[in-house]
Design a protein around this nucleic acid. Structure first.
Lengths: 227, 227, 227, 227
DNA sequence: CATGAATGAGACTTCATTCAT
DNA sequence: CATGAATGAAGTCTCATTCAT
């Protein structure tokens, strides 16, 4: 949704602007993110931004829908990941990617996370909602297939399960990893430069354990409740 | 941390203001929430608000720290809940309360949820972070105790586990319940009046099943991974 | 439609602002009229204007609907006018007032005239249209009554006639008076200070003659056309 | 005063641009009319417009001075009109043409009307004034000649009379015709497509009656006023 | 001759906060 | 203690115009 003008820009300039926009939107809530600040830092005229994008929402939308996805894909391409069979292998891959990407690109991950959160901002509601649905739909499908293959118990509603898994694996788990190093998704930037080294072995272990726990819960028969 | 002025206000007035403030902050992101709008609707002078609170942040802080907690306690007092023994009974109680409160008071639940979310708003960062830590600390303690009692496996880090459980039980589960009725936390108000009836039996079932799954995962030995 | 804030202003200040607003809107088309310019000249903060009026349109609306009408009434009160009987006496009074007011208060007359003109500005369309209808309705009524009294021919449609008379008496005639002095409604200010003296006797004569002509046309039987 | 570049343009392109420019200027006040919008709709580069015309004013000027006149002439050529003798026959012809053209080409008529109106826009003042003078000069001449021929009373100032007649016949009469169908000059486009059929017989009748009234007023001796 | 990116002034509007009454 | 006027920074966005290619 950028105008052609933006796409035709010299690479260097386009990337500089993109970078600054990501920076702005990942460090401020949408409402407080300021086009004025972006153009000031980019050293371009205020009007120019409107040659590139329809308006503030258009820029934000492009960022979270297209650019983010593109960068995620690029990152994934460079991080080979053997892919096992079955739901849990897939979930583990996604979790590993999610955490890995977060540690490599905190700003992007932050923006992506925010864009899937339900928001009280009416202007963003439908966009965020759409993005979230996509994510959940994919997960729901994978779960339904796993049920058909008999991988997991079938007494649960796939969509409800998707919510639970998404929350635990894609939100709780990255949080846990960050917390283990004493940061959260918004403070990681600042501390990154210093000594926050999250050992790869360490977080991969957390991912593995979490998935194992989930697998255990979903394959064993439920224990009797309240008894 | 309202000024004494606010606390000395006639009940009716104080409550009216409180109600409108909750409404404003639960329907707009902090930055977009407007004191002007609140005072306009409350029919009081703008200056008065500054007799009651230091500033916008002070008001927000009081709302999410004190008032919200108070209302949650009041609600809990009126919703008797037998309390079983052990971690899972406790978790189930908390989940039931969480969902029940959400269905009864969507605005409050929304505000509470937002206040525990990490935020990119520098002004709110430390506040949100603090609230979240409190929640996680309590959960971490409960988990550690359960481990000591031998209720659950001990090969997991209590704090990490707290993140996972918090995400699944306190965020994913309410989302799942709402989603089953086709709403989300921000659209529930609008639809409430119409026909969005979420049957109590239905959502209690979801809570029970989710907790059972969790219990299963945390008590059985993990299945061998990738082997 | 001003907010109470404006009405409570010290007289001096309120009048200064009003004066400057009239000046701005009577020397620029609505779109080009600038609140920034008004506040700059008034020496007040930009935000203050929004304490007084909802927005630009609100200010304009108040100006042309209320303030203008008030000033016109004030002026009329101070310019005694014996009032004959019948449609033509009434029309003559209105014409004399119209021209007199225009010569005394060109800016106000200009604004009033513009506000009755159909406009291509969508924002103003309904307002202008309403003002114009009021004027025409009154005239239509007067004409219909005159017909009933047998003062004028009855073979004409009162509403159509109102348009013709309004155009000739309330628009053409003032134009003619100004033109006789080599000015028009927008250049009169500038020239006023110099030597543009329009003799009272002179323009009263024009008014009288015009009305006489109209009366003649409306009372005599129409001459045979094309014959 | 387009640059040669514009005149050398392929017919199709030149006409497309012209059409869109007319559309823009006839639906927005000069200040709000937007070159950006025109070029966007025309699918040409913004810079191109400046190869064709000096600037916005230049384009507008050409439109209302040359193009409008050309189209009016074309229309007249295709609407044969027997031409009687004398001032009133001529006025009737002009009135019929004026109304007919308005009904056939509302946008053009609107633009033409606006361009003769005195304006508060300093940039347009002299242009509008010049156009208006031309119109009035012609009318004044015709009136003076009619006086010399003894067609009408000679106790009136020809120029003043021109103002009155212009207002009534060229402004009031078209207004009256439109009003009889419940539209005005700016709403006619929208409604045109629907059912706004103004019967030719009907409006020709209005024109004839109006002129008859005028003729009656201008040829009979004025009745004694106030007596 | 066409292009279309760049510009930057200027428009309206909103808001939290202050302060004299 | 309430009031509410005043402030001014900051925000988004539009536009005519220029100019290098």
């Amino acid at each position: 949704m950028p105008k052609p003008t933006f796409l035709n820009l010299p690479d260097e300039k386009r990337q500089r602007i993109t970078e600054l926009a990501i920076d702005e939107f990942s460090t401020h809530p949408y409402r407080q993110a300021s086009l004025s600040r972006i153009v000031a830092r980019a050293g371009i005229a205020k009007g120019s931004m409107y040659q590139y994008f329809e308006n503030k929402l258009d820029l934000y939308q492009w960022l979270v829908v297209e650019e983010l996805e593109r960068r995620r894909r690029d990152w994934l391409d460079n991080h080979s990941h053997v892919r096992g069979e079955g739901l849990f292998a897939e979930l583990e891959q996604r979790a590993l990617a999610s955490v890995g990407f977060l540690l490599d690109h905190p700003r992007l991950a932050r923006l992506a996370a925010a864009a899937m959160e339900p928001t009280s901002d009416a202007e963003l509601r439908s966009l965020h909602s759409r993005l979230r649905q996509n994510e959940l739909d994919a997960l729901t499908r994978a779960i339904a297939e796993a049920m058909e293959r008999g991988e997991i118990r079938e007494d649960l509603d796939p969509r409800a399960l998707a919510h639970l898994i998404e929350a635990m694996v894609l939100r709780g788990l990255p949080d846990a990893v960050l917390a283990s190093a004493g940061v959260d998704v918004h403070s990681i930037d600042a501390k990154k430069s210093e000594e926050t080294r999250i050992e790869e072995e360490s977080w991969r272990g957390m991912v593995r354990q979490s998935l194992a726990m989930l697998q255990s819960g979903l394959t064993h028969a439920a224990p009797a409740v309240h008894a």
